[in-house]
C-alpha cells in the first residue's frame, strides 16, 4: 500500500518536474530570429512597421479621387531643382492624418528611415518625421477645412438619404489621380522639402515625388538595407511601367 503511494507520488513529481523543465526550456527552443538575448521590449518593438489605418478603416472609407488642372508639364529637372532632399526611404509608421496644411487631399504623418541619399544633407540611417500627400482622414477633420456651403450641402443630402454619420469615426480616403499612398514597411524613392511650419519633411512632387521600389514589404523591423540598384525596379505612377533603380538614379544625377 505504502509502496503504491510512493509510486504515485514519484510519477506525479516526475510529471511536474517535466512540465517545469519544458516551460523553462521552451524559450530557448523557439528562437525568434528577431529577438536578441538581453533586449528589452522597447528595443524589440523599435521601428516595427505600424499604421493607424486599420482594415476596418480601409473597408469602410469613402474613396475620393481628385482630378487637377495643371498649368505646365512637370519636368524632372524642374522637380529636382525645387527639391532639397531626394532619398530612398523606408516607411516605419503612419501615425496620424490632418487637413490643416492641405485642405485639398490632406496629409498623412509618420516616421520614415533614410536608407540612402541621392540629393541633400540627410544622413543614412536617420529617422525623420514626414508628411505625405493624401491618405485616410476622418470626415470631421476634412470638413473643418472645406467651404461651409459644401459641408451644408453634404449634410442636407445625407439627411435626405437617411444617413446618420458619426463624422469622428467615418473616414474619407483622399488622393490625386496617379498619386500613391505611403504604406508602412514599404520602400520608396521620395522627394522631400523640410516644412518648418509643420516641423516635418514634406513629400513633394505629387505622383513624381513618391515612387515605390520593388522591395518586399518589411513586416518585422524597418532597418537600413543594401539595395542592388540593377535588380531593384522603380514604378512609374503615370504609366505603371517599371525601370531599374540604377537607370532612374542616373537620370536624376544627370539632371542635378
Amino acid at each position: 500500500m505504502n509502496k503504491k503511494k510512493v509510486l504515485v507520488a514519484f510519477i506525479a513529481c516526475s510529471i511536474l518536474i517535466s512540465i517545469i523543465l519544458i516551460m523553462a526550456i521552451k524559450p530557448t527552443i523557439k528562437v525568434n530570429e528577431n529577438i536578441v538575448l538581453g533586449e528589452t521590449t522597447a528595443e524589440r518593438t523599435k521601428n516595427k512597421p505600424s499604421t493607424f489605418v486599420t482594415e476596418q478603416i480601409k473597408e469602410t472609407a469613402e474613396d475620393a479621387q481628385v482630378a487637377t488642372e495643371l498649368n505646365e508639364e512637370v519636368t524632372m529637372k524642374g522637380l529636382i531643382d525645387s527639391t532639397e532632399n531626394i532619398a530612398i526611404v523606408r516607411i516605419i509608421s503612419l501615425d496620424s492624418s490632418s487637413a490643416k496644411f492641405d485642405p485639398v487631399v490632406g496629409n498623412t504623418y509618420g516616421k520614415l528611415l533614410i536608407n540612402s541619399v541621392v540629393k541633400g544633407n540627410l544622413k543614412e540611417g536617420e529617422i525623420v518625421d514626414y508628411a505625405a500627400l493624401g491618405g485616410y482622414l476622418t470626415i470631421a477633420e476634412w470638413e473643418q477645412y472645406q467651404p461651409a456651403a459644401a459641408n451644408e450641402k453634404r449634410d442636407f443630402l445625407r439627411e435626405q438619404s437617411g444617413i446618420k454619420l458619426n463624422k469622428e469615426e467615418s473616414y474619407i480616403h483622399l488622393q490625386f489621380e496617379d498619386n500613391i499612398d505611403v504604406e508602412e514597411g514599404k520602400t520608396y524613392i521620395a522627394y522631400m522639402n523640410y516644412n518648418s511650419e509643420m516641423g516635418k519633411y514634406e513629400i513633394t512632387g505629387f505622383a513624381d515625388g513618391l515612387m515605390e521600389l520593388s522591395i518586399e514589404k518589411e513586416q518585422k523591423r524597418v532597418s537600413p538595407i543594401n539595395i542592388d540598384s540593377q535588380k531593384v525596379m522603380i514604378k512609374n505612377n503615370h504609366t505603371g511601367e517599371y525601370e531599374s533603380l540604377e537607370s532612374y538614379t542616373e537620370k536624376v544625377k544627370s539632371n542635378m
Binding site: Q65, L70, N71, P147, R154
Partner: peptide
C-alpha cells in the same frame, strides 16, 4: 457648385480641380 480659394504654393501649377458626388454625398472616382 463652384468655389475658389488661395491654394498652397505647392499647387501653384494647379489652376483648378473637380470632384464628383452621389446624391448621398459620397465622392466618386472619374
Amino acid at each position: 457648385d463652384i468655389y475658389a480659394g488661395y491654394l498652397l504654393d505647392k499647387y501653384n501649377n494647379t489652376n483648378a480641380y473637380t470632384t464628383i458626388w452621389t446624391s448621398s454625398a459620397t465622392q466618386l472616382y472619374f
